[in-house]
C-alpha cells in the first residue's frame, strides 16, 4: 500500500491550501494570536474544507456501490435519478410540511432517493440483456424525466430557487459551521459500506457467483441502495449535487487497483476527497475573489474523463 501515503499527503496539502484561500486573508501561522483569523478559520474555512472532503469521499464510495449494484461501470449516483429523487423528497416536505425540522427533511430526501434509485433498478432489469451501454443511457434519461418533474413542481410552487441549489452544479461557498454537519451522516453511511465491502465485491461478480457463495443478494442490494440514497440525499441537501465524482473516481481507482473493494474502498474515498478538494480550490482561484462552483469544474473535468473512459479501449465486460 504505497498509494495511501501519497494520497494522504495530497489530501493534507490540499486541505491546508483550502484553509488559506479565501476573500479574507488568513495566515495559518498566527491564528493563535489573531482572534479574527481564528474565527474565520473555525466558522468558515475549516467547515468548508471538511465539507468538500466529506462530499468527495462519500460520493465516490456511493459510486462504487451503485456500480456494483447494477454491474455497470458507467453509472454514478448523479446519473441514475438518485439526486433527482432526493430533490423530489425535499420539495415534498417543503410543500407539505414547511415547518418540519431538519431530520424530517433528511429522512424524506433519503427515502425519496431510495424510491427513484429502486425505480432505476426496476427499469434496467427490463432492458435487453448484454447491452452494456443502454444502462447508463436509461439512467440519464430517467434522471432527465425526474428532473423535469422536479422543475415542474418547483415552478408551480415558486421553489425554483431551491431546486437550483440542489440540482444545478453544487458549490461550497455557502458552507459555514452549523450548515454542513449532515455530511458527516453521508460519510458515516459510506463508512458503513466498508464493513460490507466483501459482500459488494461478490455482488459485483454476478448473481450466479454470489448465490453460489451463499450471499443473500437481496439484503446486500438493500444495504447498497440505502447507502447510495443517504449519501446522495445529504449531499443534495447541504451543498447541491456534484456531478461525475461518483462515476469517474471508482473507474480510475479500479483501473489501477481492481475491484477488491476491501482494499480499494479507502483509496476510492481518499481519491474522491482529493479530486473534489482540487476542483473546489481551482474554482476559488480562477476568478478570485469571485468563485466558480466546484460542481461546474467537475462538470467539465468529469465529462472529459468519462469520455476518455468510454473510448479508451474496445468494448469489454
Amino acid at each position: 500500500m504505497r498509494r495511501m501515503p501519497a494520497l494522504l499527503s495530497a489530501l493534507i496539502a490540499l486541505m491546508l491550501a483550502s484553509l488559506t484561500v479565501g476573500a479574507a486573508h488568513v495566515d495559518l501561522r498566527d491564528i493563535f494570536s489573531d482572534d479574527r483569523a481564528m474565527l474565520v478559520l473555525l466558522e468558515s474555512r475549516l467547515p468548508r474544507t471538511v465539507a468538500v472532503a466529506l462530499t468527495g469521499a462519500a460520493l465516490s464510495v456511493a459510486g462504487v456501490l451503485i456500480q456494483a449494484l447494477v454491474r455497470n461501470r458507467f453509472v454514478g449516483p448523479d446519473t441514475v435519478g438518485t439526486a433527482e429523487g432526493a430533490a423530489l423528497g425535499l420539495l415534498g416536505v417543503t410543500i407539505l410540511f414547511p415547518a418540519s425540522p431538519l431530520w424530517v427533511r433528511m429522512i424524506a430526501a433519503s427515502l425519496a432517493a431510495m424510491v427513484t434509485t429502486w425505480l432505476f433498478l426496476g427499469v434496467i432489469r427490463r432492458l435487453p440483456a448484454r447491452e452494456v451501454m443502454l444502462i447508463p443511457i436509461a439512467g440519464l434519461v430517467l434522471s432527465g424525466v425526474l428532473g423535469s418533474v422536479v422543475t415542474f413542481i418547483g415552478w408551480q410552487t415558486d421553489l425554483m430557487q431551491y431546486v437550483g441549489t440542489w440540482l444545478l452544479s453544487g458549490e461550497f461557498s455557502g458552507v459555514i459551521a452549523g450548515r454542513y454537519e449532515l455530511l458527516w451522516v453521508a460519510a458515516g453511511a459510506a463508512g458503513l459500506a466498508w464493513f460490507a465491502a466483501d459482500r459488494f465485491a461478490i455482488l459485483g461478480l454476478g448473481e450466479q457467483v454470489a448465490t453460489g457463495l451463499g450471499l443473500s443478494t437481496a439484503s446486500v442490494m438493500r444495504l447498497g441502495l440505502a447507502v447510495v440514497s443517504v449519501v446522495t440525499a445529504m449531499v443534495v441537501t447541504t451543498v447541491g449535487m456534484i456531478p461525475f465524482v461518483g462515476l469517474v473516481v471508482p473507474n480510475l481507482v479500479s483501473r489501477v487497483m481492481g475491484d477488491n473493494l476491501r482494499a480499494s474502498l479507502p483509496v476510492v474515498a481518499l481519491s474522491g476527497a482529493v479530486l473534489v478538494l482540487a476542483c473546489d480550490l481551482v474554482g476559488r482561484l480562477v476568478i478570485y475573489p469571485y468563485e466558480v462552483p466546484a460542481g461546474m469544474i467537475l462538470g467539465i473535468l468529469g465529462a472529459a474523463l468519462f469520455l476518455w473512459l468510454l473510448h479508451r479501449r474496445p468494448a469489454h465486460g
Binding site: M133, L310, A315
Partner: peptide, 26 residues
C-alpha cells in the same frame, strides 16, 4: 456500437454545457 455512440453524444452535450456555464461564470 450505437449505444456507445449515444452515450458519447450525451456526455459531449454535458461537457459543452459545463464549459459554456463555466465561461459564462468567468
Amino acid at each position: 456500437d450505437i449505444p456507445r455512440m449515444i452515450l458519447t453524444g450525451v456526455i459531449l452535450g454535458v461537457l459543452f454545457r459545463s464549459v459554456s456555464q463555466f465561461l459564462g461564470r468567468v
